[in-house]
Amino acid sequence: MGKPRKEPIKNPKLWIVFVILLALLTPWYFPGSFDDMFIFGMPLWAISIIVVSILLSAFLSYVIKNHWMIEEEKEEMDEKGVK
């Protein structure tokens, strides 16, 4: 027997992370002092949003690779069976 079947929607932990990332992706929490800070010519708040965006993409890649497994194993078995 192989790995158990996994579906992202059935794993609440993943969605807690997504909600936290979504909250951090929305610029509501920056103190006013961030207005005058710049890195590489970009406002600091914008840099923060970009960093969170990168985290979201990385987390998505992780979830897709490791927490989505419904047909894959069966399909691989079928393929081997055919060959």
Binding site: I9, L22, A46, I49, I50, S53, L56, S57, I70, E71
Partner: peptide, 29 residues
């Protein structure tokens, strides 16, 4: 810079896919 939102909103599309694409692929098949 307020239009920077255009970057994460395209990433959100992939997150939205995770709500249904895994099961839909299986059912579609």
């Amino acid at each position: 810079f307020e239009y920077l939102v255009s970057v994460p909103f395209f990433i959100m599309i992939i997150m939205a896919y995770l709500l249904f694409a895994p099961r839909l692929y299986s059912i579609g098949k």
